[in-house]
Computed example of a mutant assay.
Amino acid sequence: MQKVKAVVAKSKGAPVEVVTIHVPDPGPGEAVVAVQACGVCHTDLHYREGGINDEFPFLLGHEAAGVVEAVGEGVTEVAPGDFVVLNWRAVCGECRACKRGDLQYCFATHNATQKMTLEDGTELSPALGIGAFAEKTLVAAGQCTKVDADARPAAVGLLGCGVMAGLGAAINTGGATRGRSVAVIGCGGVGVAAIAGAALAGSSPIIAVDIDPKKLEQAKAMGATHTVDSSKADPEIEIAKICSAVYEGAMGADIVVEAVGRPETWKQAFYSRDLAGTVVLVGVPTPDMVVPDLPLIDVFGRGGSLKSSWYGDCLPDRDFPMLVDLYRQGRLDLDAFVSEEIGIDDIEAAFEKMHHGEVLRSVVVL
């Protein structure tokens, strides 16, 4: 058992607190990781606001990289001293999805069995089964993906959630590749990552849609060939215009990634795609949201696919090492996603900056 500093949300909407927690020694199938860096993600704010569930207190943080300190009995995936990116898709290998070969849809991903606790023994709920706003955290060994130890922790840790979600939404879920056009609605961290993924795959044109000029500039820096300010122009019309200028007769983009998670922007995505095109929902809606007034004949008549993207439909063991290698080669600029490096005491201020769209990612460096 170890005592470490960590960031905890104790009740709905209350400011987070830096407290001392207890981290158990790893049991069978578990690992203790010394966290080096962890990104501040919208999901952490959702936890604090009670938008995920009410299992307070939460140990926040999940976009993390660090070094394995100790492993429990039976662990073969990683060893002490390995540099790892943490993930929340530790596939079971036994469920129906895994047995049919669709490991990215594993229905029974697992976390550490033991619980980290407050000093009074209160059990903590780690965000996405990770809880990495902490000097050390306990996870299932399958949540650790070994990558190049020379990579910058603050950059590659972001593959643990938002950057992987966006890259994967474009490439894994949407099927972005050469000869296909891509539009991305919503250019926060996940949306910009989708643009970077489309650029990595060789898609063109790549169209960024947002209402914030700063975000559109960030999107251009990450590979967008065109931008649309949807506060000034109709994105459906503009996307069709851009795509038809490249591919004669195109009525929209081949792939439209919706990275906002709202009914109105999802409908924009639906009507901004070409015939037989693909819509990918990677923005996370709230339970009360519905898509009104969508004629079923339009769903039928346009054909194609309407998809949601879970964690970019990634397999961490397959995707993380590859993407870190591309980063090390200078072909994927993960550093560009790190807007600032902050301390463990600065997370409330980072939530405020994120809320106002001032950063792609604030990253806690421990």
Rank of each mutant, 00 (worst) to 15 (best):
M222G: 05
S339F: 07
E348D: 13
E341D: 02
D210F: 10
D333T: 07
R328Q: 14
I237K: 15
A127R: 07
F270T: 09
V338C: 03
V192S: 08
P15L: 11
F351I: 03
A201R: 13
K353G: 02
P295L: 04
H62S: 12
V184G: 05
R318N: 12
V365M: 05
V363Q: 06
C243Y: 05
K214N: 14
I297R: 08
A151P: 07
V23S: 00
L124I: 00
I347Q: 06
W88A: 09
V299P: 00
H355Y: 10
V156E: 07
L296M: 10
M164I: 08
P126W: 00
V147A: 11
D102M: 13
C41A: 09
D212M: 13
K136R: 15
G162W: 03
H356M: 03
F58I: 04
A208I: 10
D346A: 14
A97H: 08
L124G: 00
A240E: 15
L158V: 08
P295A: 06
G261E: 07
C187H: 05
G223E: 02
D346Q: 15
P28C: 06
K241D: 15
V40Y: 09
K241A: 14
L60K: 02
V40D: 03
A349G: 10
T76G: 08
C243G: 02
A90P: 07
V18C: 09
G131N: 02
V280R: 01
V282E: 08
I206S: 06
A194R: 13
M222E: 12
P292V: 01
R178D: 05
K5L: 13
L281T: 13
G343W: 02
D346P: 00
S305Q: 14
I52H: 02
P295D: 14
A31M: 05
P26H: 04
G166C: 04
G283P: 01
A65P: 10
M354Q: 14
T265P: 00
F83T: 10
H46D: 13
C187I: 08
G202M: 09
A253D: 12
G249P: 00
V18P: 01
C95M: 01
D229Q: 01
V364H: 02
L158T: 05
E248T: 12
